[in-house]
Design a protein around this nucleic acid. Structure first.
Lengths: 221, 221
DNA sequence: TGACCTTCGGTCATATACTGACCATAATTC
DNA sequence: GAATTATGGTCAGTATATGACCGAAGGTCA
């Protein structure tokens, strides 16, 4: 049957309600501790109905993670709009990265655990692949920035793009992981930003030999 | 089956959607010209579904009319809150009456036709009874005000309450009908209010012998 | 006038959506 | 390691929605 608008709207509403209820619970209590029944209850649906919209508990989790990461990825694409200078793009990227994960620590924690212990996670092959692919899309943004810097003559043509990308990625994750996993959770946002800024500039200089101009105002939004 | 909240909410939503779609069409094009199919279409439901919520086209119409009148009746009850003086209550009643019908001319038109040509309307006995009963509830508010005036000593005890009530009711309907059914639809709201005011005060004086104080500010909202 | 056509209120068999008791299995308890 | 509990996933049963269909009423035309 041809679905009319109302029906479509209502289906989407149900889907959203399930995802919303699930997201809250997963991020509060972790994948394991949350039951499908409790998701259903919160979404004001029965368990059976949840399974009409998603084929498994894991699929719900997957859609939440992948959707969140996608939203993040989309935001990182802004860096190409805001500036024509590669080093500024990298700074902008770092800002977006920090913003996003400061506002969604649990997602970051999950992804970190995923990346660090990929073998021990018992997600399906399917979800693993998706997560890796989606994560890579984001990592590649960094690579693109370096490539852009080379093309524009801002960076020397002989730098190792791949290695540079990994270094930046590692720096960002390192600082934020430190923040999340050590006892230093209360480290102030501004502190994180400034340590990332310093590390970033140093790293860019080391990788490319380019002296990054000291623009202290840059991070102000 | 025990209906959970979501189900209840959604049922109410459907009902509201049908009534909303129907109300608009009935008041724009009249009872006859509107088809159940078009109501259903506007409410984004099928004709069959409309009949799950209402047992006939007339029942939909009935609920709309009765509900509108009930809302009106409720508002007229305010008169007992706002003042302890019967003549002011009558003025207040007139204000509410005018306000309501200026904002809902079609309902008024329908009721007028109903009252004037009750025999020619082909509503069911059921709806006729309801309409009359509901209308009477409102007329009785006027009667109550007169009774209150007598009890408080504001009006002489020997006035004919029933007759007074009918006179007021007639005055209000007369002025508004004139406005609606003659070519003078563009007569300004303020004009109607002032002609009702003058007529009302004169009528009260004639009926009760009480000189109504000339309080020109009364009607300001 | 009466045969034909159109329209529309109302019905109902079918289709879609939702539910929660149930099942198999894995975790936990004792 | 038997017994109990907890939970992901299934499915037969129920509730809700749909639109093709029917009959009556009114209109049209010869």
């Amino acid at each position: 049957m041809e679905l009319n608008n109302r029906k479509k709207r209502e289906k989407e509403q149900r889907r959203k309600a399930i995802l919303k209820a699930a997201r809250k619970q997963f991020f509060e209590r972790g994948f394991k501790a949350v039951t499908v029944a409790s998701i259903a209850r919160k979404a004001e649906l029965s368990k059976g109905t949840v399974y009409l919209y998603f084929k498994s508990k894991e699929e719900i989790y997957a859609q939440i993670l992948l959707n969140d990461i996608d939203k993040f990825h989309e935001r990182t694409l802004d860096v190409f709009q805001k500036s024509g200078i590669a080093s500024e793009m990298l700074r902008h990227f770092a800002d977006v990265y920090i913003d996003f994960f400061l506002n969604d620590r649990e997602l970051f924690r999950i992804l970190m655990i995923f990346m660090l212990h990929i073998d021990s996670m018992k997600f399906s092959e399917e979800l693993n692949k998706h997560l890796i692919r989606t994560t890579n899309k984001t990592i590649n943004v960094i690579e693109s920035i370096f490539q852009y810097g080379i093309d524009k003559g801002e960076f020397p043509p002989d730098i190792n793009v791949r290695q540079s990308r990994n270094a930046i990625w590692g720096l960002l994750n390192g600082v934020i992981s430190l923040h999340l996993f050590t006892g230093k959770e209360l480290m102030r946002e501004q502190k994180i930003r400034s340590s990332v800024r310093v590390g970033l500039d140093t790293l860019i200089e080391g990788l490319t030999g380019v002296q990054v101009m000291d623009n202290k105002n840059f991070s102000s939004k």
